[in-house]
């Protein structure tokens, strides 16, 4: 075994893992305010990347503006989804709403394919393509962007949920909708807000990932799936758990590919995930919930 290879596996794993973690973050917000898993979360990530690429292409905008506009556009898309697909069926059981989000994700993917075509697109890296050498291993500047932005978003979310009245109100909705509304919280407004925030997080994630992962209309499927796995691994509803779960999943995959077999790297990560869930069903960092339906 050689140290620089091991370091390279870890760096690769952390880079891929932070992409999973970013996708996972969005799941936790909507879950926290509505108790549903939004399977269109991967589509938000895709929209962030694709909007950025096309705002740059169509309007010739500099990348920072393109990303900002893409995030706004995706936020609007998130709001529209809540208004048009989720709110009309309010009162339905969470499982029905989950199925609605699956439908929404298929719809968005189809629409993106019609508008942008089936090709893959690349976004230029934010600060160059020159790799940084770390003890014989190489790291792309974009990976630092991904890690940095993920951390910043985590901190912002933490502050939002524990220090603002809006964030606390949102949490209250997830514990008990009825009680929250009796306390004078506008539950519908909170749900709308949660969709917009998670769309924003997804879109920013999609935009900073696009230089590394490339982007296409169907990039959200895998990111959504891996993000969901990261969420489960870290414990549903815990933003820190979700981000860490993503990193753990990424590192496991990378080490599996390096030291076992690259053909079975996905299987390897998911077997460990299953094993962990047998031992700790609430995930690595989840609270043990007494009753959660």
């Amino acid at each position: 075994m050689n140290i620089s290879s091991l370091l390279q596996y870890l760096i690769s794993g952390l880079t891929t893992g932070s992409t999973y973690g970013l996708a996972a973050l969005g799941f936790t917000i909507i879950f926290n305010s509505t108790g549903i898993i939004n399977f269109a979360q991967g589509e938000f990530v895709m929209l962030g990347g694709m909007f950025s690429v096309f705002f740059m292409k169509w309007f010739g905008l500099p990348i920072a503006w393109a990303v900002l506009l893409a995030a706004l556009a995706t936020m609007i898309a998130g709001a529209l989804i809540e208004r048009l697909a989720i709110r009309p069926v309010k009162g339905a059981s969470p499982i029905n709403l989950v199925i609605v989000t699956i439908g929404v994700s298929i719809f968005i993917r189809g629409l993106a394919m019609l508008v942008w075509g089936k090709d893959t697109y690349a976004l230029p890296a934010f600060s160059g393509d020159k790799p940084i050498a770390v003890l014989g291993a190489a790291m792309m500047p974009q990976s630092l962007w991904v890690l940095g932005v993920s951390l910043a978003m985590l901190a912002a979310l933490k502050a939002f949920f524990s220090h603002t009245i809006q964030g606390k109100a949102m949490l209250a909705c997830s514990f008990d909708r009825k009680a929250a509304s009796l306390m004078g919280i506008g539950v519908e407004r909170m749900v709308l807000l949660s969709f917009m925030i998670s769309a924003l997080i997804g879109a920013v994630g999609g935009a900073i990932l696009a230089p590394i992962t490339l982007t296409s209309f169907d990039v959200g499927v895998l990111l959504g799936l891996k993000g969901f796995a990261a969420c489960i691994l870290g414990g549903l509803g815990n933003p820190f758990g979700a981000a860490l779960g993503g990193l753990v999943l990424g590192v496991l995959e990378s080490l599996g590919a390096g030291y076992l077999s690259s053909a079975y790297k996905d299987a390897f990560a998911f077997i460990l995930l299953l094993a962990l869930l047998f031992v700790r069903p609430q995930g690595l960092f989840g609270r043990k919930s007494v009753k959660r339906v």
Binding site: S5, Y9, S12, G13, T15, G258, K265
Partner: peptide, 20 residues
């Protein structure tokens, strides 16, 4: 003799192994 998935977005692990 390494393999990657059709939707994979980072193949540095496989390349590092090949490099060795």
């Amino acid at each position: 003799d390494e393999v990657y998935g059709p939707k994979d977005t980072d193949m540095t692990a496989q390349l590092t192994k090949i490099k060795e």
